[in-house]
Design a protein around this nucleic acid. Sequence first.
DNA 1: GATTTAGTGTAACCCAGGTAGCAGAATTTA
DNA 2: TAAATTCTGCTACCTGGGTTACACTAAATC
Lengths: 251, 251
Amino acid sequence: MSTRFFDSTAVAAQLRRSPLFSSLSDATLLDMLSHFRRETWKHGRCVTGSESEQCFHVILSGRMKVGRINPETGRMVTLFLLDQGDAFDVISLLDGKPSPVTLDAKDDLELLSTPVEEARRWIEHHPEFNYGFLPYLGRQMHLLADIAGDLALHDTETRLARLILRYVDTDNSHHSLRLIHDLSHEALGEMIGSVRVVVNRQLQHWQREGIIISHRGKLVVQELDALLKKAMHHSHNAAKKPFSGKSKNHY
Amino acid sequence: MSTRFFDSTAVAAQLRRSPLFSSLSDATLLDMLSHFRRETWKHGRCVTGSESEQCFHVILSGRMKVGRINPETGRMVTLFLLDQGDAFDVISLLDGKPSPVTLDAKDDLELLSTPVEEARRWIEHHPEFNYGFLPYLGRQMHLLADIAGDLALHDTETRLARLILRYVDTDNSHHSLRLIHDLSHEALGEMIGSVRVVVNRQLQHWQREGIIISHRGKLVVQELDALLKKAMHHSHNAAKKPFSGKSKNHY
DNA sequence: GATTTAGTGTAACCCAGGTAGCAGAATTTA
DNA sequence: TAAATTCTGCTACCTGGGTTACACTAAATC
């Protein structure tokens, strides 16, 4: 990690594109930047929660994987795959308690960072920050809830289909992937709470069905709507339960 | 659901005990209450996200289960078990997008409610609310991240042990359970992303080991530290992987 | 260009835990 | 108090997907 000076106005302009900061005035933004220092992380750098002092970070460029680890088995889950304009670790910023996160740089990264107390104080003095911050938190919570729901309710096939669909570039004519295009099967496995072998097995299976083309890390979606079907069609036998029976709805 | 007037000062005093509102001034609190209406829900009332208009709720008394459902299989997960002083649906309050939540009243409930736009506007005018709100969001996110992590990384035995430990009343001499004491095995299953049979199987197993006493919904923890061991000792065979190998940590 | 390292493709194995089903206790409704 | 409904306890069964292992390819590193 290296720390150095930086061109505040340039960085400010860069941050403007992120919804977190887009609504801030020039003055507020520059004031904020004066409290941050710049850092760079090399691709592959991996930090487990305990060993990092509590800092709030903003990503200027590169991707950061935020996840959890089971130290007994060595297995990991990815909770967030953050991109430029994203911030972490938001959770410990909010509640002060350190969370047992695992950070893993998926690229060379440029970051801004500041101690959480500093960030918290700054937010307190600049309530207009919340205009972008609260919706951002909402998106994060939404994502977490989705992950938890998926893990509990859907099988690996469904989860993988959903993962891919979440990142397909529908604008593009040949549906390529944003953000996760170059991830290994291992990394994809972590994103759906599973493992390498399962991801590979599933991709090969879909390939034989003609839904995708997958070879050596290249992944192209061939039949988008077929994949969409897989993303909902979890249970081998849908429409079994006629009615929940639980919904008495008495009041 | 019934709507009626209520004694603002009494309710204000009641809310004061919740960390969400404890730091608000009398004036702010009363102003807030003037925007809310009172509701009551009968135990068992169950609402799926789509059918409720977007409202922000605060619980005055009773428990509310917030979860997700897989309509194909009928299975459900519990994401939050909310108590008095808690608020929902926070997520759609923050990001405006409706989340596919399932609400299920586990008791007769007293609530305050107001349309999300109203709540959002009120928050914007009362930045001091964030003093309690942001830490509250932090706790919620923390919880969600824990659930997702547990689901992906731990087996059902571990998850159930953790659930119980999260709610044991350590003050009490005979370790009884807070909040979940009267839940059915079905409901416990939903809280760990599993099903009734598995919960029962596990409880009986622990009973034979002398760790708990469980019969017909009564559940008493006998050996607290044995349960603690189960809560970490997930993998049948711990300490297998000597070192992650992934942590190159070059920089 | 040779060696090491990281990722991919596949196959054999196996078990945690989910599905289905039933009987008896407890509680609610009629 | 009888009938209906909801819970619990238990069993038998089966499969999704995790573990392990190995050969092969591509890409770094020497």
